[in-house]
Design a protein around this nucleic acid. Structure first.
Lengths: 219, 219
DNA sequence: AGTCGATTCGAACGAGCGTTCGAGAGTGCT
DNA sequence: AGCACTCTCGAACGCTCGTTCGAATCGACT
């Protein structure tokens, strides 16, 4: 006599939860986390206000689930994509492509992730921050290898990588699907700017105007 | 007999309003616009809840005043600084320096400007959007001149300038005053990455790995 | 002393907030 | 039929929200 099956019917409750997460991400993206009420979510999902609480404890956990699912997926997919790639610049390109791909295919979730980070309170906040640290550490390692292979970068490494994230994470503020380029061209542009930009090869702009020319960027 | 002076005493009410704007920007930066109550502002300013409404009509107008003051100042200061500069790359440097300077000296106001743009509702929203368009158009013109003087950029121009703004506007998400570089070094890094990055000079990374090598970035 | 505008505030308004609760369907098993 | 478990919901809870109102205080001028 077997133990009672843990989930006798592999419920479609998980499917419905995912639906709620998707719809909620859309509303959070449009009106912000604090600017969205549970009643808004109830109307959009066509689930009664109290019915929502069958799927999660609190509005905070709802935000947490969206952020964690999104972020976890991005990091895991990046690791898969990196598996077959050795060349440092190709790895950096994979990083950017993975990020931008997701940004353009799941704009709502990404906006919530970028924009509502601070709306999360502290048991949850630290968990998401941990994933973020892991992601950033990976990006930094990839960048280090690029710099090592090429000429040395003249820039503060942390600042350089964060500038790369700046270019990527700002996309949600301006990208218009019909008008702006798709993921591939966007990736090319950002990787292009960053790789040329960060290399010490003195091209046309090897001598940049600067306030203090004699002591530029030295650490 | 002179006409009654328009403002017989040059009221310190304007000074007090500026104080309220400064304190409010700080709280909005910390908890978000929707996450901040008028009662929070009342406590922090030590002005009674109803007393605040002597200085502005509504919470919306408070946000509007912060955003408009901040943005107007940045644009005007940039125009002053550009007045004496002819060299295109020096002008671009002035743009970035002006932006980063303000970001680091008024982090709260800048965070509110970057983060709470969408919290503003529609009579106000359009006014701030108009200043933003003006600023962006100016940035684009400056960038055009850089590209014209140098080799042609291979990148979509709008995307390139928006990537520059991405690097600049993301700063508030990570910059830690004691740890990260100050305005000058930050400006050098961002201008450096962007200018090298955007130039067509084929340096070390003239041949970037790309998904579709034969049709890169063509418009 | 009296008047007037500028400034401040306590108290209250109606509305909306996140969350809880207990009751009731729906479904499959014995 | 009866039970157990999953799922759903209307109604209500205590609380906080942005805003309003009428009265009080202040300083300067007549």
């Amino acid at each position: 006599m077997a133990v009672a099956a843990p989930t006798p019917t592999p419920r479609n409750t998980e499917v419905k939860l995912q639906h709620i997460l998707r719809v909620s991400a859309q509303i959070f993206a449009a009106h912000g986390f604090e600017g969205t009420s549970m009643r808004d979510i109830s109307k959009a999902t066509e689930i009664s206000l109290s019915g929502l609480y069958y799927y999660f404890d609190s509005k905070q956990r709802l935000l947490y689930l969206i952020q964690k699912n999104t972020f976890t997926f991005i990091v895991e997919r990046l690791q898969e994509r990196l598996a077959g790639i050795d060349d440092p610049t190709a790895r950096l390109r994979a990083l950017v492509q993975n990020h931008i791909d997701y940004f353009l295919s799941h704009p709502n979730e990404m906006k919530v992730l970028s924009h509502e980070e601070e709306a999360l309170e502290n048991p949850f906040r630290q968990e998401v921050a941990a994933i973020k640290r892991k992601y950033f550490a990976l990006a930094r390692k990839i960048h280090e290898e690029v710099v090592r292979e090429a000429a040395h970068s003249v820039f503060n490494e942390r600042v350089a990588v964060l500038s790369l994230f700046g270019m990527m994470n700002w996309v949600y503020q301006w990208h218009k699907p019909g008008i702006d380029p798709g993921a591939d061209e966007l990736t090319d542009t950002i990787v292009g700017i960053f790789l040329r930009g960060v290399s010490a090869a003195s091209g046309k702009f090897g001598n940049l105007p600067t306030t203090v020319p004699s002591e530029v960027h030295s650490e």
